[in-house]
Design a protein around this nucleic acid. Structure first.
Lengths: 341, 341
DNA sequence: TTGAAAGCGCTACCAC
DNA sequence: GTGGTAGCGCTTTCAA
């Protein structure tokens, strides 16, 4: 089981055995194969902890996401995982359930390991988190951070507000003047950006009414949020959701309320998760390149000369509106002054 | 950064400092707080690798799943993650993409760490994997294993064939005599069990025609599988999918082909992922208790006296058919001999 | 080319 | 109660 046993079995010193495992060229042939055989016979498996202890770092990268069950994060995770496996890295995963306290704790645990890097795709990350990440002098990549400092951390930023503005403008051009927003509980910065992008734009249009309702990050949360909006007496002709995962539930609730999409109400999601295309009607949404995000993060963490584009960079990605079947011109009956074609 | 520095700063021996961290009661008050202060001042963070190296095992459990992007696995992962965080454990994740070779590699990597336990929820796990897991004399939990040996591994078994039989019988009772099955590429044992459950049952009904088509594990894979089935000239009145994730795509393709569900074709999925309820029509499916599976696995791995029910057990879970809106009595026009009500 | 030995940071055992 | 110290399994000088 240990290198020493292998060395003994092969009749060499442990140093030589170690060399065979790491720098085979430094060991002459008869010796080398003896060690290799012994290793195989004993089913030798290097103790990663010992390796990391002496080596300083390990081939492990830490990943923190908000909610693995949300396909948005699952996709990022998948991309990270693929890259990691390709490069013989392992992943340590933590999910925060959007709780800042859990992010904090997760970060602490990760800082206690000799990780090769840390990737954070958690919507609740705030300036303090970045600061600690930077202070850890360890490669890090973070999604959706707007802060300015540039150190060892790579920032992936997305113009959510812009995208949201375009979405609202699109609905406005369709004649919608009464819009609802389905949001998140406990949403911090980046989600806020989506919400505030919505609010800001909506306010810039005179004569547009709006309402915001929140639920948990799940289809069911979306359902409940929409329900409470309807119950409050607000009857939107268009609804935007903070993400597709919740939009799914909103769609359901709309239908349950006897409202047909897009005939009676238009619906726009966010993220463009694979499933959004498979809903009925196919969901109009905003594409956020999740695979790409995962890949960029991984590449930023490990300094692979082949793919690396430098760490500590700020990468701007542009989410774009993808038009499908859940949006339409506002109905005549629902809106007096706008004409339906 | 290291315990030694903390000890120095506090003017105590490293042994004492260690005690303060692990068994605070063994250190008297003035000393203890001095150490604690020093630790905080220096932002001390124990090196997990060193701890694990000396301690033998770490508070880390390894998780192997087939595909994180499939909500089925994501949900199991989420449950595991929650339990892990509660108990101050970390998760090392590997995803295999259903590739046996990757399972093998993942297992190797995990065996090289001093993991507290290993949870495998990978459909492609075979007898050999179990054997290696058992040989590793480390707590392990595995989903969907049918092998017999009982050691340090906990087995969660589900009567997929039974469930599938009930699903087919249900469709048969609805008058369906032409059934299609949407399956997986590279599916091994457990998925096979679903498929063979289908085939066995279908064959037991005289006069029932069937066809099987496979795709990758994604909505798109489901779409393509269904397309190829239709293209082959087989026109089912009912379709069963190996899982909901693929059923989503099948549903889409059915509609695209001008077939309405359930009017023209009935559809049954498998897993009961949260989204299945939100489709239109809501998907009839077979419930597999994913949260529960994740929890059982975790509890089996760590021997928490509060929750543990013993390791090395074989746990049988019963998946059950959940009837929703995607299934209906066969149409008169589609089926001559069966009468629609 | 190979071996001896010094740690990596920590826990636990044995003295004091 | 506290300090000294022997490793955990491995990599990596430094000599031979």
């Amino acid at each position: 089981m240990t290198l020493r046993e292998v060395a003994q079995q092969a009749g060499v010193s442990i140093a030589t055995a170690s060399r065979v495992m790491n720098t085979p060229d430094m060991v002459r042939e008869p010796t080398r194969s003896r060690v290799l055989e012994a290793a195989k016979a004993l089913k030798y498996r290097p103790n990663r902890h010992a390796q990391s202890l002496v080596g300083g770092v390990s081939r492990v990268i830490g990943v923190i996401v908000s909610n693995v069950a949300n396909p948005f994060f699952a996709d990022i995770l998948q991309a990270l995982e693929r890259r990691a496996t390709e490069h013989d890295y392992e992943l340590v995963l933590e999910s925060t359930d959007y709780r800042p306290a859990r992010l904090e704790a997760a970060l602490n645990r990760m800082l206690g390991r000799r990780l090769a890097g840390i990737a954070v795709a958690a919507s609740e990350a705030d300036a303090q988190v970045i600061e600690r990440l930077a202070a850890a002098e360890r490669p890090a990549a973070i999604l959706d951070d707007s802060s300015a400092s540039d150190d060892s951390v790579t920032r992936i930023a997305m113009r959510y507000d812009d995208a949201m503005r375009r979405a609202v403008e699109y609905l406005h051009s369709l004649g919608h003047r009464k819009m609802g927003f389905v949001s998140h509980h406990g949403s911090l910065d980046p989600l806020r950006e989506r919400e505030s992008g919505f609010e800001t734009t909506v306010r810039s249009f005179p004569g547009v009414e709006y309402s915001v309702a929140a639920g948990s990050d799940s289809p069911d949360g979306g359902r409940q949020a929409l329900r409470s909006m309807l119950d409050s007496g607000f009857k939107p002709t268009a609804v935007l959701a903070v993400n597709d995962f919740m939009a799914v539930g909103a769609l359901r609730e709309l239908r349950k309320a006897g409202l047909e999409v897009p005939r009676d109400v238009s619906l726009i999601g966010f993220d463009n998760i694979e499933l959004s295309e498979y809903l009925t009607p196919a969901l109009t949404t905003v594409n956020v390149p999740r695979r790409r995000i995962g890949e960029i993060m991984f590449d930023a963490l490990i300094n692979d000369p082949k793919t690396n584009e430098g760490i500590g960079r700020r990468i701007q990605l542009e989410p774009e509106l993808v038009l499908r079947d859940s949006t339409a011109v506002v109905r005549q009956s629902a809106k007096k002054r706008a004409g339906a074609r």
